[in-house]
Amino acid sequence: MTFFEKVQNLDKRVFYLLMALAIAIPTIRPIGLPVTITSPVKKTFDFVESLPSGSVVVIGFDYEPGDEIELSPQAKALFVQLARKKIKVVTISSFPVGPMFAEECLKVLKDAGYQYGVDYVNLGYYAGGESTLAAFAKNPASIFSKDWHGNDVASMPIMKEITGMKDFAMAMTLNDGPTGGTGTHEWVRQSVMAYGTPFIIGCTGVLAANNMPYLDSGQVKGVLSGLRAAAEYEQLVGKLGDATRGMDAQSIGHVLIVAFVLLGNLGMLASRRRRSAGGEKK
C-alpha cells in the first residue's frame, strides 16, 4: 500500500484518539480563544434589551439530555440579561426531562433575588405537542392547574398577569427538534402567527439552517444556534461560563475534522495522479 492510499484509509481508531484528545485537552486547560459576535445573536440580545422592565416572557425547555450542553448555556446567559432587566419568566416543557433543565437554569434568577411564583415559575411538562401548546396559548390555566412542584398555579401572582400567549412580551423555545416534543415551526405557528407575540429561537447547531428563514423574513426576532451562540451571548452579557469554555474544544474538534477531510482528498488526488501517470507510461 502506497503512502497516499494509507492516508486515504487511516485506521479510524487514530481519528478517535486524536478527537478524544482534541476535546479533552482544551476542556481541562482552556485556551480562551476570542469569539466574535454574529448578527443573529446581536439581534437577539438587542431585542431582549428593548423589552420593558417588569414584563413577562415564556420560555419552552424543549430538549433532552443529549443537547443540554448546547442549550442550557444559552438559557443561563439569557437569564442573566433577563434578571438585570427585572423581566419575569414562565417556563414550560414538551419533554418530561425539560422541567429539570429549567429548574437548573432558573437558579440564575433565584441567585439574582427573584421570588418563586412572583417573578418566575416552572410550570412543568405538557404532553400533546402543538395542540397542547395551542391550548396553553389560548388559556394557560386549562393546561397547567399545578406547577412542576405541585403548587396551585391560579394563586400565583405571576400567573394572574397572564391570560394567554398575547400577554407575554416575548416567547422563546430552546429546541432540539420536533421529535418527541414541540418543534420551532410549531412555536412560530402558535406564538407569532396566532397571537403576534415576539419570538426568539434557541436551537442546536444542526438546526440553525432550518430556522434561518424565519429570521430573514422577520417572523422571529433572533436565532441562537449551538454552543457558539451561547458563548457569544455570554460575552454580550459579560458573564463567561460553560459555553465559552466549550468553544475551545469545539474549535479544535472542527479543525481536526476539516484537516482529516483535506488529508483524505489530498490522498485521493495524489493516487489518481499516480494512477493516470502509470497508465500513460504503459
Binding site: 478527537m19 439530555p65 475534522i257 482528498n265
Partner: peptide, 28 residues
Amino acid sequence: IIVPTGSAIFSLLAFYIGTAAYRAFRAK
C-alpha cells in the same frame, strides 16, 4: 445517570461524523 449517559451517547456522534466525513467527503 440520565444527563451524563444521554450526553455521552450524543457525543459519540462527533467521532462517527468525523470518521464518516473523512471517508465519504471526497471531491469525486
